[in-house]
Design a binder for these strands. Structure first.
Length: 295
DNA sequence: ACGATTTGACCATC
DNA sequence: GATGGTCAAATCGT
């Protein structure tokens, strides 16, 4: 069943996306040369245009690299939907074997995507922490979150947050399942689940951090580990404040040789199941460009 | 009082 | 048997 499907179904169509990105980069370049406005304004706009083009270039490079690995990766992208919630809402005591069985299948589930970020805040959804675990061979514990609307609306989305081994200031956030809930997204439908390509803005990030931490001035928890869980409550932050920049993290693109993405070492966004991400790329770009030109 | 978090226990998978 | 994911009672915060 699964094997024939893996062979027959074509992997995510990346080539068209690459072409589209190239076209947009070209049009941006053309546009940049035609900007005739207030010199002060021009400087800012050019700067942002260059940043945007730089981001697009990186995306193209990564996509091309991924594209070359597509055949190899296709087999790993088989979607294994979460088990049916036939016993959802059963809050009985311990005898819950069927639920456990279903939950444990998450291990190795390819239908996930990973994001590495300097904060754990704001992805447009509200999360409830349901566990934390010390992970063998990992320095930092892993926190487990489920969607706040899991029981209200049967939303199956979950995420795991863990401090990066390489950089303790970064958090590796792995998402599982898709949100089927309404509540969180209604706050800002623009805020899509995946991280977006947005204009770099350290200032915005600083503001976010400031808001995040000032929201819990008297919290008993002070070390960084605990901040991971605290920040989940900050999902109500202004949704217009997006992540500072989309970046890619080579380690989580499965099936690639170590070092393939060294040239992207400054990048900081990771993808496990990239099909989920690329579906949003067009929207992301058009949104950001519209946002920019609305400036 | 209520909702969120913590944490030890349970259980499936490897 | 080791490990990781989830549950749920206990605890905490507002």
């Amino acid at each position: 069943m699964g094997s024939s499907e893996a062979e027959g179904s074509s992997p995510p169509a990346i080539a068209p996306v690459i072409d589209e990105l190239k076209k947009r980069r070209q049009s941006l370049a053309t546009l940049a040369t035609r900007l005739v406005v207030d010199p002060l304004e021009l400087q800012t706009q050019k700067l942002h245009l260059e940043e945007t083009m730089s981001t697009i270039s990186k995306a193209i490079a990564i996509l091309e690299c991924v594209n070359s690995q597509q055949g190899h990766m296709a087999a790993q992208l088989e979607y294994s939907p979460s088990s049916d919630v036939t016993n959802k809402g059963s809050v009985g005591k311990r005898k819950i074997q069927s639920t456990r069985k279903a939950a444990s299948r998450k291990r190795g589930n390819p239908y996930s995507w990973t994001r590495v970020t300097s904060t754990t805040i704001e992805d447009g959804h509200t999360w409830r922490k349901y566990g934390q675990k010390e992970i063998f061979s990992a320095k930092h514990p892993r926190s487990y979150f489920r969607c706040t609307y899991k029981y209200d609306q049967g939303c199956k989305a979950t995420r795991q947050v863990q401090k990066s081994e390489e950089d303790p200031f970064l958090y590796v956030i792995t998402y599982f399942g898709e949100h089927t809930c309404e509540g969180a997204k209604e706050k800002n439908p623009r805020c899509r689940e995946p991280c977006v390509v947005s204009f770099e803005s350290n200032k915005i990030n600083d503001i976010k951090q400031e808001i995040a931490f000032s929201s819990f001035p008297s919290h008993k928890q002070e070390n960084e580990e605990e901040v991971v869980s605290n920040l989940t409550s900050v999902d109500a932050l202004p949704n217009c404040l997006e992540q500072p920049a989309m970046e890619l993290h080579r380690s989580s693109i499965t099936g690639l040789e170590p070092g393939w993405g060294d040239s992207f070492s400054g990048l900081n966004y990771s993808i496990n199941s990239y099909d989920v991400e690329f579906m949003d790329l067009e929207d992301i770009l058009s949104f950001e460009l519209n946002e920019f030109f609305a400036w």
